[in-house]
Amino acid sequence: MMSTNLLYSLTGLVLFALGLYALIVCSHLLRKILASNIMSSGVFLMLVSTAYRAGNGKIDPVPHAMVLTGIVVSVSATALALVLACRVQETSNVTLVREEYQHDTSGA
């Protein structure tokens, strides 16, 4: 089916856009990391949807391999980001920059 490919591609694109929006708008580090993960899921969904071949049931294995590689890369980057975020919170407590800033101004 023509539309199967299209459906997955568009869903992937929407996920990418949602993640990008959250990455820009949210200030909490954990949310930013989650947002970037959603973005990467969107890209992977689009990539893996190109492997789909209508009809004969054969698939294109190259996007599969690429997605597998991409997932591993994204896991590695996410792990580093999470540990780094923990360190940042331990040493300087800035994960909640905006919220705490609002607290201070309202209290003063």
């Binding site: 490919n5 990418f16 071949r53």
Partner: peptide
């Protein structure tokens, strides 16, 4: 996003890959 989506829609859907 709308622009990208439009591009996806007008792109040829079944390009042969490397299979």
């Amino acid at each position: 996003t709308a622009m990208l989506g439009r591009t996806i829609c007008i792109m040829p859907q079944q390009m042969p890959g490397l299979e």
